[in-house]
Amino acid sequence: MKIIVLIYLLSLGIFSSLLFQNKTKKESIKAGSEIYQDFCLQCHLSSGIGVFGVFPPLKASDYLLENTNLSIAGIKYGLRGKIIVNNEEYDGIMLRQGLDNEEVADVMNYILNEWGNKTSAFITPNQVSKISKSILE
């Protein structure tokens, strides 16, 4: 009987971990690093410094670090028009990359914690799902 209960509990544990794939922050950052290589690096570069005046920096970027929700919206819906990053004006277009909410959360966690960037916040897919396009307007 004990064995059956044990097996029941074990399989419950395994199933629930499969069903609710809640990543740890570390796992999310790792997944985000791969998304970054695929979708972001060509403009923002592997160093995260971007190209001055053309592609804004992510490393030590006041826009990114102080406007988490705007940054999420930019990745989720695309961003166009003027923004000011570290006192420099950028007037370009970042296309919507077609990432799902989990991928947006992962890449946000990566860029918020790479190149010396640090934040205690942990972006979740649920948080991304609640960000609407209207905050960009």
Partner: peptide
């Protein structure tokens, strides 16, 4: 059209 990264 499938929108993803450089695709569209």
């Amino acid at each position: 059209v499938y929108l993803r990264g450089q695709g569209g």
